[in-house]
């Protein structure tokens, strides 16, 4: 056993920055972080903690004297009816994410890699344009398209396909939400595809990979961070959307977002239960983001 090399005391002391120096090093980042820090604490941390507290008071209504803490609100979520709502919401959100990916990828690919360069910005703007109108108005527009005598069926019947009764069904929700959130997906995929190294595709072609093999073995892995980020954004926003399910989904379109809305602004006004479901959503979303940071957002050039 050898003793660890000892450093003379005065050198060890001298090597340490003085208290003043260390304070100085602290002050600069603190000053930079202060505005956003205050903002975050005031408008994110404190409200979230409040929701967390309310969620622990079973059946709390505004104006009530708060009862004892308990997990009643959380247990309530596990009743079959609420689990069904949760499951449907997840279905809507996952389906929308998948559809956005399927529809959005070719579009983003085309804009980023195939469209003439001088048109790209214009094409992107055209794609984002619908975001400038109210989401309610867009959902309303889909009513006129999807209703039995609407535009869709006029077109379908013109080409000899029997009309479909899509409005007021889950299919309409998928259509409406995909339309609503597609621009986000296209934007994120575009910025990811724009950075795609074309030379890698050439290298793959050079090694004998046909277009499909190039897509699955190079394009997709290379743009995986974008796919993950876009998917997560669409997933989170569609999980929280209640305009589209309300207007297009018909009688069986209760989602967790609507359920939460009903608890706060509906006649029930069960803030405790609403808060517990909000906490569940916050938890699910945080988890998804954590997963993205851990596994999704890796620079493929820099694995380690």
């Amino acid at each position: 056993m050898t003793a660890p090399p000892t450093v003379p005391r005065e050198i060890a002391l001298a090597a340490k920055p003085s208290l003043g120096q260390r304070l100085g090093q602290l002050i600069e980042p603190l000053t930079l972080l202060l505005p956003s820090g205050v903002w975050l604490v005031l408008f994110l941390v404190i409200p979230t903690l409040l929701i967390a507290e309310i969620s622990l008071v079973p059946g709390l209504r505004p104006g009530d004297v708060p009862g004892a803490y308990g997990l009643g609100n959380y247990l309530q979520i596990f009743q079959p009816v609420y689990l069904r709502v949760l499951f449907r919401s997840l279905n809507f959100a996952l389906g929308t994410t998948g559809l956005c990916l399927i529809v959005g990828f070719p579009v983003a690919y085309w804009i980023a890699l195939m469209a003439p360069k001088r048109w790209r910005t214009l094409l992107l703007v055209v794609f984002i344009l619908p975001l400038w109108t109210s989401s309610l108005l867009r959902a309303y527009a889909w009513i006129t398209i999807l209703r039995s005598s609407g535009l869709l069926n006029v077109v379908l019947q013109a080409v000899g396909i029997p009309g479909q009764n899509i409005l007021n069904s889950p299919a309409a929700v998928y259509v409406g939400m995909t339309y609503s959130f597609l621009p986000y997906m296209v934007l994120i995929l575009y910025s990811s595809l724009e950075k795609l190294d074309i030379r890698l595709l050439e290298a793959a072609a050079d090694l004998g990979a046909n277009p499909a093999q190039r897509f699955w073995q190079v394009t997709v892995p290379q743009t995986l961070p974008g796919i993950a980020a876009g998917g997560l954004l669409v997933f989170i926003t569609s999980l929280g959307d209640f305009v589209v399910p309300t207007l297009l989904g018909g009688a069986s379109s209760m989602t967790i977002a609507r359920l939460i809305y009903n608890q706060f602004l509906g006649p029930t006004r069960n803030w405790g239960f609403g808060s517990s479901m909000s906490m569940l959503l916050i938890l699910a979303v945080s988890l998804a983001i954590a997963l993205l940071i851990r596994y999704g957002d890796r620079n493929p050039e820099n694995y380690s």
Binding site: R199, A203, A205, D206, G208, Q217, Y303
Partner: peptide, 29 residues
């Protein structure tokens, strides 16, 4: 098309696949 030709290229930029190991890069073709 390039992928049917019996030629292989060494690129100036190397164009190695960053998401694959050295072994997988070489095994690609």
């Amino acid at each position: 098309p390039a992928y049917r030709r019996p030629v292989n290229t060494v690129f100036q930029s190397y164009a190695l696949f960053g998401h694959m190991s050295v072994w997988d890069n070489i095994a690609f073709g």
